[in-house]
Design a protein around this nucleic acid. Structure first.
Lengths: 202, 202, 202, 202
DNA sequence: AATGAATGAGAATTCATTCAT
DNA sequence: AATGAATGAATTCTCATTCAT
């Protein structure tokens, strides 16, 4: 019987690829990119080391895909959360809160995605990812400024600051602070302070 | 005389230790913790690899000390900058600007200290360091609140947020933004926003 | 009909075998036996790797056949060149010149056939091939001796010497010497020198 | 007690290097350059694999040194044999005979040195070695020509031809022919034949 | 105390071969 | 008969750690 690229074989291959990628993601989530060795990935995925090389060009390539897949998901989530109807500031608040919750649920993965350098290829991918991340948030801030919801400001610094503040507040050694408080902090940062508008006391 | 000998010996030992630690710091500053190999440290320090093991328990231990020393210096700098006379907010602004400038001047070291994980032991040390960092800043914020310079707020979240915002804004792929703008952003974040104080337009 | 089917099948099989062998030869001609990998052969031949194993016992076997086919062709060419009418010495000269030209045109293949060992099985095949080669040339020398065109001599050493001299003169790092000069050298070697016949000066 | 580069340690290091190189040579002598793996060399030499890397830059480097050492010895032998007093032709004869005897005593090594390609780095070394080889012999032929011992001829083709004839006659599948006969063949080749000097019959 | 040679476990990658389809 | 995905042993190289000197 001739070998045919049946639905079954294709499915198995897709499953294999997914298993390898999944094994990689889990390893990174547990031990950072440091823990991402080809042998470990193969064992986790239940395939031979050689099989990993059938699906990926090499370790670098695999690492980049693991990173991109995980990162892409995060960017998507943020993008969706920002996509709703005005007021934009509320969308931003919701997105920040959501992101904090997700990061708190998977700290190591979040950290690996945000900070761990590991490989030049991954570092490069991280730059691209951060840029997309920041751009997504910057877009929302920009829209809010245009709608008059926020004052004029340096949008790109603000976006990076928001990302950093979120990341640090979540990943820092504080034992899971309330996402709402982090969100409040971030939103405050988007309202440039000037002496003419003194802080309000409650 | 035996006494003199010991004194000399101790001095030389302290010098050796310092040389090894310095070599480690320079290597990390140049290539991150990835570049911190025992052989490279020994060569830089002008000692044999075996000697490194006389002064440090192992690579992990050395890495942690290198990290701690470098981090401690940063905390010191911030602490000093915050130590001056009121208004505290001005001290905070100066400290943030100073920190940004230092980080921009030594990006690799700053990155290694803030983000690169490398080893579990170092990661743990990083947590402790961040805590001290945040505590230092939190102290300043607290004082400012007490002086009435800043409104009441969750001081620890604010401090972490400030650290994160600084780090991301400096280390992100933005090509060295102006420290003054980052400082302005951080200070805004310390003025909790509420609808009663609408953004001021210029 | 079953019979026709078989005929067609056989023809296709022969074609497949030839394609695989041809792909192997081209790979060796391009990169030596080092470049003869099963995967590469299969790809060149347009079949699956598994199919190679239906036609050949394994890589060794394939390598030997590739070698033998290519070598056999060379021996054939020499045999034909030697087959013409006397004087035999002129046939020999023509054969040597022809061989040199062919080798210079396809250096990598010539080198792979003559010198590259790669596998024990191929090395053994090379011995057999050289023996046939030498035997062919030895036959011609023998005939020349019988015809009185050449003096008595150790024919097998002479034949081997001719093959070696040709090969080295062609493959050595000399940048394609003139085949005519190599031929002259080889013919001289076939005229045993003795003090009674002093070298002629031009 | 301070570690000192004593005569003893130096001797041991030299011994180690020699052992590794010797192990390499023996492996090549037994199975060609194909058999030269770092693990096998280390095991034979009785050291750890890492130790091989202390003495050699890598496998390529080791292979080149194994090759060079063995080849250098051969060139030396030939050079010495050619160095004596005239008549130069007798020196050449002695050198050829000697070389053949040595090659017959160590066929696999001789073959590996002369023919096996293995690595680009070794192949390159082989080119250099062959050139030196041919140059040495060409020098002798040249001197013989100047002394009037041999007629004018293309010295470089003659030298290459001699090397090739020697190699093939020795390495060919002939079961150790008499070196004297090979020598006679080579010397004949150095006396260009012309119709005016008909072959002498014994 | 200091040295640095030696160690060997561990990492990435290749490729001949097998086998379910 | 044919396919090509899967296998895993083999290979090169690195580097933290040890130990005789």
């Amino acid at each position: 019987m001739a070998y045919r690229e049946t639905a079954k074989t294709r499915a198995r291959q897709r499953a294999n690829r997914a298993r390898i990628l999944g094994a990689g993601r889990r390893l990174v989530a547990e031990g950072g990119f440091q823990a991402l060795t080809v042998a470990a990935v193969a064992e986790r995925a239940g395939v031979a080391t050689g099989t990993v090389y059938r699906y990926f060009d090499g370790k670098s390539s695999l690492a980049v895909e693991v990173f991109s897949e995980a990162s892409g998901r995060e960017v998507e989530v943020i993008t969706e959360a920002l996509a709703g109807p005005p007021p934009v500031v509320e969308r931003l608040a919701a997105a920040i809160t959501l992101w904090c919750r997700r990061a708190q649920a998977g700290r190591t993965l979040a950290f690996a995605l945000l900070a761990e350098p590991a490989e030049p290829a991954v570092a490069e991918a991280r730059l691209r990812y951060r840029a997309r991340y920041a751009a997504t948030i910057a877009g929302a801030i920009q829209r809010a400024v245009r709608c008059g919801e926020l004052p004029e400001q340096d949008v790109s610094v603000a976006a990076a600051g928001i990302v950093g503040a979120m990341a640090e507040a979540v990943l820092g050694p504080h034992g899971d602070p309330d996402p709402e408080i982090i969100t409040a902090f971030c939103l405050s940062a988007l309202h440039p302070w000037s002496p003419r508008c003194p802080p309000t006391r409650s």
